[in-house]
Amino acid sequence: MKQIELGRTGIMVSDWCLGTMTYSRQTPQEDAHRQIDMSLDAGINFLDTAEMYPVNPILKETVGDSERCIAAWIKASGRRDDVVIATKAAGDMAMARGGEGYGPDNILDILDGNLDRLGTDYIDLYQLHWPMRGSYMFRQNWTFDPSGQDRAQVMDHMAGVLEKLKEAQAAGKIRAFGLSNESAWGTTKWIDIAEQIGAPRVASVQNEYSLLCRLYDTDMAEVSHNEDVVCFSFSPLAAGLLTGKYANGAVPEGSRMSIGATLGGRNQPRAHEAVAAYQAVADKHGLDLAHMAMAFQRARPFKVSAIFGATTSGQLEHLLRGKDLELSAAVLEDIDQTHRAHPMPY
């Protein structure tokens, strides 16, 4: 498994990351722990979780249970130092802390909550789940309107949060800092302020990125290259669309679509047309569609660690068979032509 540096931190992570957002809900704890062991055996040393997980659906009574599931694995295995753990502080969401969001006044308390649920005294990568000023992610790009933002307030908010995270890093509670669902402008502002005050510099941005969602390819790609920010991509399999399991109208029992029919806005006719086109590319070159979709991530001209999830260890076993796949120039050319024919299908 390829290893990359997490920003400029010196922390080395695998270019695949095990996502845990189904842990303790769709994925029972025993199977979740099996998945972590399987991933470590395959060379994956990176786990991603969040305060608000598990999802499908997000419930007030289950917020934080995925972190607790990982804590149970750490306690049972004693392998805390073998994994790089990334988690997040939720934004203004009613199910987490009554929707109060995060800011300078409470970010350290939120962090202590993450640490307590994870059963560890440090977090390798601490992320802000989405900007408090709003975000164009999750299909909001179609109607995004930043005109209500107050630049001075945004700058003050960033500086205040970073001052607190500087304290947390000095205390050994976090090793690195990352963003999620963030823009190019926002990322560079966080970086500029961090450098001015000596706070943790942005090491990664966790944004959606897949064959079907390539907003990252322009401005954010430039930020990644010039500022040494890793694209920590979520939904590289487009919530299961790029496994092919929803082809021809199929909705497997227990699948994400069987629980949430819209797949977070991804279940669109044009998306299924695009998946069929990528399936044809995979078939042409004798590849598994999911393996091709994951391998595409490491073929990008910027650093990527792709966060994939598996509801079951059986699904994980299948995905791991493609962990070392490198795509040929011919495959990448066909992918490029398919992307041009099916841009942003949701």
Rank of each mutant, 00 (worst) to 15 (best):
A250I: 04
R214S: 14
D219Y: 09
D219P: 06
V202L: 08
G240R: 02
C231V: 01
L215N: 12
E208K: 07
S224C: 15
Y246N: 03
E253F: 09
C231W: 00
A199E: 01
D228R: 14
V202C: 07
A238S: 14
D228T: 15
Y246F: 12
S233Q: 07
Y216V: 12
M257I: 09
S224P: 05
V251T: 15
S255K: 09
L211W: 10
S210E: 09
V223N: 03
M257D: 04
S233A: 15
R214I: 11
A199T: 05
N248K: 15
G240M: 03
E222W: 13
R201M: 08
F232A: 02
S233L: 02
L212D: 02
L212C: 04
L215W: 05
A203T: 06
V202T: 10
P200M: 06
M257R: 11
E253C: 09
S204T: 10
L237G: 08
V223S: 04
T218Q: 13
A247N: 15
D228E: 15
V202Q: 05
Y209V: 02
D217M: 02
R256E: 07
N248H: 15
N207C: 03
G240V: 05
L215I: 09
C213G: 11
A239D: 08
S204K: 01
V229F: 01
A247L: 11
I259G: 12
L211P: 01
T243Q: 04
R214G: 13
A203N: 03
S204F: 01
M220F: 01
P200Q: 07
L212N: 05
R256W: 06
S224R: 03
D219T: 05
S204E: 00
G240A: 05
H225F: 14
K245W: 09
N226K: 12
V205Y: 00
G240K: 01
S235N: 15
S235H: 13
S235F: 15
L237M: 08
G249R: 13
R201A: 06
D219F: 07
N248S: 15
G249P: 09
G254E: 07
S258R: 00
K245N: 13
I259R: 11
P236R: 09
D219G: 02
T243C: 04
C231Q: 00
E222R: 14
A247D: 14
G198E: 10
A250T: 07
R256H: 06
R256G: 07
C213F: 14
T243V: 05
G240F: 01
Y209W: 10
P252R: 08
G198T: 13
P200R: 07
V230R: 00
G240I: 06
T218K: 13
L242G: 01
V230E: 00
R201V: 14
L237Y: 04
Q206N: 10
D219M: 03
A221W: 04
S224T: 03
P200D: 03
L211M: 11
Y216Q: 13
A250K: 07
H225C: 14
D219K: 06
